[in-house]
Write a protein that binds this DNA or RNA. Sequence first.
DNA 1: ACCTGAACACCGTTCAAGT
DNA 2: ACCTGAACACCGTTCAAGT
Lengths: 202, 202
Amino acid sequence: LLSEERIVEAALKLAGEAGRLENVSMRALAQDLGLPVMTIYNYVANKEALYELVINHVLRQVRIPLPEEGSWEERLRQLERDSRRAVNRCPGVSFDRRGGGAAEATRLADGAMSILASAGFDSTAAALAFATLFTFLLGQIELDATDLAELSATDIEEVTRETQLSRDEVFEFGLDAVIEGLKAMLPQRRSAAGSPRRPSSP
Amino acid sequence: LLSEERIVEAALKLAGEAGRLENVSMRALAQDLGLPVMTIYNYVANKEALYELVINHVLRQVRIPLPEEGSWEERLRQLERDSRRAVNRCPGVSFDRRGGGAAEATRLADGAMSILASAGFDSTAAALAFATLFTFLLGQIELDATDLAELSATDIEEVTRETQLSRDEVFEFGLDAVIEGLKAMLPQRRSAAGSPRRPSSP
DNA sequence: ACCTGAACACCGTTCAAGT
DNA sequence: ACCTGAACACCGTTCAAGT
């Protein structure tokens, strides 16, 4: 009996061993499942579809924080943290452009957008803010996947090593900075409602 | 006559056609140069070394802004902008973990670190700030490489399309936000020199 | 109709044979 | 000593032969 679940499970295991999901071959995947290679193609159209299956599985575990779970800043922080953890928990997977079309990625994007809307960003500003958060997360996950002292000289790796900074600390600092920056981009809101719009000073 | 320069030139051309440097084969590269495949291996040890050659070539064009060219914020902005432009000018190249060890990447990292130092970040804070900027740039370049409406539904692509936001605008907004956020992280500095250190309030 | 073995058109790289 | 053709050990996927 073969299922998508078993395929994903095997793919994740092999991705961990191979370092990268991209260099797990369909042949190796089939062998691990004890199946002829072509049988897998009854479940996934091609290797690209396998990537999507995996990234959907990974992101499905991420929950969108509810409005009552904290301020918009805290909810965004939690969403970003949770997304990073979910991806990093599965070594070898990263969601670059291939993850874009995944249904679960869309769900998380919607969640982030609605949190931003609740913060007072209009749809244009929310799109910009979302792109910033997404972009930061993408880069951070890429950085997390870069292990050991591959980066030489005065690169991040060296500095963070000699200053004893963990990856989590690096992430938290960056996340704080990004959210702080987004807060500054928020059109001036007054605690009193109905404040008239004033032109922003350059 | 064969040189590193000619190899890089051909690789860049083919990367543009293939969409990604990673799927330019050594065989195709050799054919484009009118050479036997194995001759290339006299100049690059393996394909990984080819990536490094290319990324070094691309980043070499990026200049570190001099201290007199503006405030630290403006110099950082310029460095990030320039780096992004250099990479995006060569379609198919992206500097993920493979670019990490490249000498030119180190040069740019050093440049960013020294700008951050001049802004008043101590070495720990500078490392954290650099990681944030680097991470943002990495993700942004990845996003730039994701073309067309591959991203579905309420993803960035749709929102930015319907709100008519260009990729440059998305980048500039994010960059402003990140730098604004970093400024907020800067330990309080007074315009007068020698101000005594005060404990930061939580 | 479903499943899948063999085959096709590729890879990066090794290695030994040529000069 | 240098250069490189042939060969090796892989790929993802097509397709037609089997049931």
